[in-house]
Design a protein around this nucleic acid. Sequence first.
DNA 1: TCTTAATTAAGAATTTTTCTCAAGTCAAGA
DNA 2: TCTTGACTTGAGAAAAATTCTTAATTAAGA
Lengths: 128, 128
Amino acid sequence: MTHQREVILEELKRLRTHPTADELYEIVKKRLPRISLATVYRNLEQLSAAGIIQKLDFVGRQMRYDGDISKHSHIRCVECGSVADVRINPIQGIDQAVIDACGYKVLDYHLDFLGLCPICLLKKHRDN
Amino acid sequence: MTHQREVILEELKRLRTHPTADELYEIVKKRLPRISLATVYRNLEQLSAAGIIQKLDFVGRQMRYDGDISKHSHIRCVECGSVADVRINPIQGIDQAVIDACGYKVLDYHLDFLGLCPICLLKKHRDN
DNA sequence: TCTTAATTAAGAATTTTTCTCAAGTCAAGA
DNA sequence: TCTTGACTTGAGAAAAATTCTTAATTAAGA
């Protein structure tokens, strides 16, 4: 475990914002000013391959990362792109329903939401 | 409605493969050899903004497009990236549960799956 | 048929991510 | 402590996906 990897993991676990690689790079740079963006990408890739963090590859074009690997849903604001956690009970018996419906074997599922965050909701109300 | 847009929409509606912009470009090019990739992107963007098609921006880094705008789930093969439809009953009362959990207003949700398609499942069995 | 506003093709530019490689670091054994 | 070899880093180049720019063309209404 290199120092760089340690700091990347530490900062990601501390954040609750599901940062992009670039956002995390800017934050880590405050502690390690000489770190390179490729190092951030490389370590995020390895940490998620090892199951230590989660790569959110279903929240739009850009990857986001989550230091919390417990199973939970996300909601993304369609206005500002912010992502929040949503704790919802797992759906029972869904795997078999999918195999029956399409023949694929289910490894995982994501129940994710699109919506408006409290701030953007307020803005909309003001504008109308 | 330009001829290009007509052909793009027609081919997308015909396909059941949730193509990427590039895949659709290759298919449309057989009918319109001089069409440019940017035209395909531009029209897919406009058609999805108009609600005539669906942009799948939660299936990985690359966007995919679906000519079927009826509400349904998708499953993506982790090996080959193929995407199939899954018809599952809508989840009751989920909107209120989310507002309670995180304060965001729900506009839409996606219940999507990761798994293995029948072909890759077979390959895995052969390799082991 | 004109007019004009929208759309096109082509390529440049941008954005996000991955790759390359020389130099640096680490861990374990001699 | 020194050496060795494998792993990792920083920096920039490259790749992949998408968007933008521009002059030319086309669609659609008057």
